[in-house]
Nucleic acid binder design. Structure first.
Length: 114
DNA sequence: CTCGTGACCTTCA
DNA sequence: GTGAAGGCCACGA
C-alpha cells in the first residue's frame, strides 16, 4: 500500500475523465475515495504543479455550471477547451444530463489500486 | 496547538 | 429562477 497525498489521488482521478465528458467536484472527490471533500478537489486543482497535464476543465460544479464567474479568464479558457472537445457550453454552464461522465467501477479500481 | 481559507454541496425560503 | 446558511475537512501560517 503506497502512501499518497490526497492531491495525488485527485489529480489521478481527474485524468481518468474521458475526452468529451465532464464530472462534478463532488463526484471526483467521491471517486478519489474522499466523500464529502469536494472543496479539497478545488484546492488540489489550484495546487496543480505546472508542467503536469491535468484536464481540470472537465471538472464542473454539480449543477453543471463552471466554477468561475463568467467573464473571468479562467472561465473563458475552460469554455474554449470544453468546446474543443465537442462539449457544448452555454451561459457558463453545461448540460450534465448529456455530458456527465459515468465511470466504470472496474476502471477506477484498476487505476487507483494503491 | 489554533485559525483562516477554499476552482464545493445541499437544503430551505 | 435566486440567495443565504450550515456543513464538510485538509492544508499552510
Amino acid at each position: 500500500m503506497i502512501q499518497v497525498s490526497h492531491y495525488q489521488k485527485i489529480w489521478h482521478t481527474v485524468q481518468l475523465i474521458p475526452k468529451g465528458y465532464v464530472a462534478g467536484y463532488g463526484q471526483i472527490a467521491d471517486l478519489a475515495g474522499l466523500p464529502g471533500r469536494a472543496r479539497m478537489v478545488g484546492k488540489s486543482l489550484g495546487a496543480t504543479p505546472k508542467g503536469m497535464f491535468i484536464p481540470w476543465f472537465r471538472v464542473l460544479r454539480s449543477n453543471g455550471q463552471i466554477a468561475f464567474p463568467s467573464g473571468s479568464e479562467l472561465a473563458a479558457e475552460q469554455t474554449g477547451l470544453l468546446q474543443q472537445e465537442n462539449v457544448v457550453v452555454l451561459n457558463n454552464r453545461v448540460k450534465m444530463k448529456v455530458f456527465q461522465w459515468k465511470p466504470d467501477l472496474i476502471e477506477i479500481l484498476s487505476k487507483l489500486k494503491y
